[in-house]
Each structure stands twice: as C-alpha cells, then as structure tokens.
Design a binder for these strands. Structure first.
Lengths: 145, 145
DNA sequence: GACAGTCACTATCATTTTGCAAGCGACTCG
DNA sequence: CGAGTCGCTTGCAAAATGATAGTGACTGTC
C-alpha cells in the first residue's frame, strides 16, 4: 500500500482502509496521539525498522492523516502531527482499543481517562441519528446505481 | 500475521489489531455481515486469491471472529458466520466507513439504513460514561505498573 | 455411467512487501 | 577535533502476497 492510487469501489469501509489499512499506520497514529511525534520516539516505541517507519510516515503524510512540521531549524528536526483527518480517526482507535480490551484484555492495560470526570472512558459506537448503539437495531445495506 | 501468538503489550489497540490488523480480514468481516458467507461468494466479491482467502479465513477462525458451519452434508458445504467477537467488531467497521465517507467519499457509496426509521445511520464514537463524543473532551493516558 | 459443472479448497511458484543491519549527513556538545 | 544524537537511506535476506493451475467431493444431465 503506497497510500496512493487504487481503484475506488463503492464501499466506504474500503475507502477508509485504503488510507490506514495496515497495522503500523494505526499504531503510528496511536503513538502520535500519545505525544510521540518524533521519528526516534516512534521508532523506539514501536520497535519498527527505520525504512518501514519512513515508508509508513510518507504514506500517512500522502494520505493526509499526518503532516511533517519542522520544530527546529538548527539542527534541522521534524515532527509529525495529526491533521484533521488524522484526529478524526482517533475515535476509531478508541473503539478498537475497547474491543481489544474486551476480547484480548488479559493483564494490565493502558486506559484513557476523561480529564474532567477522572473516569476511564468506555468508547462505544452509536448512530447519531437514533442515538442507539450500532448493533442494537436492524440495518439494511443500500447500494448505489 | 498468523492470528496466533504474539508478545502481548499493554496497549488494547495493539491487542485488537493482533486479531484483525489487516485489510483482507476486515473486508471479509464486512462481506460476511452483508450476507456473503460462503467461500465462493467471498472470493468473487473481494477478488482475492483463493490461497490468501483460505489463510485469512483460517486466521479469523483461529482468532475467534468467525466460525465455520456446515450448511449441507451432501454435497459437503460450509459457510462462515460471525461469532460474538466478530459481531462486536461490526460497529468499528461502521465507524471506519463513516470516516471513509467523510475523507474519501467521492462518488456514490453504499450506505446502511436503519430499518425502523428508514434513515441512513451516522456512526459516531462516544464515551458511554459521559455520553460525549470521543474527541470532544480532554483525555489522559493511564499506564499500568 | 461418462461427462460437464459447481464448490471449496490446496500446491506451486513469481512478485511484492517487510524487516534487519549498516551507514550517512547534519548538526551539537565537550 | 571527536563522540554523540537525530532522522533518515541503502542493500540484502526473509516472509507474505498473489496469480495460476489443479484436486476431491459431489450433483445433475444426457
């Protein structure tokens, strides 16, 4: 996956996965969100090979999820920050994490705490129209054409 | 990714991705949800090579997201159905789809319609504790140890 | 009962992607 | 000047993926 061209189907899930459909990309987004924005931080945190990290960062940049920003001119140093599209993906990470906790949650796990209430969050996907959790009501697929 | 052993970290996102962290797996779940439960249906719908499909199905089965069920003894025919863990992953698919629609949504796309209201769903991740959308409030990471 | 056809695969092999290890350029600090 | 850090690139081996062909268990049809 170069993060570039691909034949576009009519499935929005596919469209989403085109841009973040691999494991490293998602873990990179997670780490950037945790504040690990620099190359070396990402590399050591993820234990990823440098060439792979470079490629993933380039792909994510090309896909518009992250952007490179120079935070120091001398010495020249860059960091990677989430774009709006990248930030918008974070709730999905939270949902994946919740699922991982439920089905593979042995041992102590990292949590995200709501700063205001001090309580751990419990991410859940709902339909903004009905307010009902996705999965609780019957759905039907509607195809274009 | 064999879907089998891997060193467990403390990150629930990682735990989740261990089991579904590749593109085909996710698209397979989507298709099974759409009712394409049989090998040939999946193969033609996805345009995936048969060996790859077999491997993915085995991995998803091993990871407990789908289960093989014989729906005909003679001729011997199997289908793949979502387990509870697999069904529980579907809301995440919906969220990914919504993101894909927003950021890569050119052209006509498939939608999911709430059968009861007849309106397209708008998936959104909220914190079940506060009711607030994830992303709208400050969060802090809490690490074990 | 021989023969084409479907379904659900497996086997083989080329291509692609991933990953390890080493190195490199631009600097800073001592 | 020399060692050290950061942010990479290059070269090569290993692993995963994908195209193609083939196989076994049937069914349904002359």
């Amino acid at each position: 996956m170069t993060g570039q061209e691909e034949i576009l189907g009519s499935c929005p899930v596919d469209r989403g996965l085109m841009r973040v459909g691999d494991r490293w990309s998602i873990l990179i987004l997670r780490d950037i969100d945790r504040g690990l924005t620099r190359y070396e931080q990402l590399r050591t945190s993820l234990g990823i090979a440098p060439n792979i990290l470079s490629r993933r960062l380039a792909a994510l940049t090309g896909a518009g999820l992250i952007a490179k920003r120079r935070y120091s001119e001398r010495p020249p140093r860059d960091e990677y920050l989430l774009t709006e599209a990248g930030s918008d993906f974070l709730p999905i990470l939270a949902a994946i994490g919740e699922w991982g906790r439920k089905y593979n949650g042995a041992g102590a796990l990292t949590r995200q705490i709501d700063v205001e209430t001090g309580k751990p969050i419990r991410p859940m996907v709902i339909d903004a129209n009905s307010g009902a959790p996705i999965g609780s009501r019957a759905l039907r697929f509607e195809y274009p054409d």
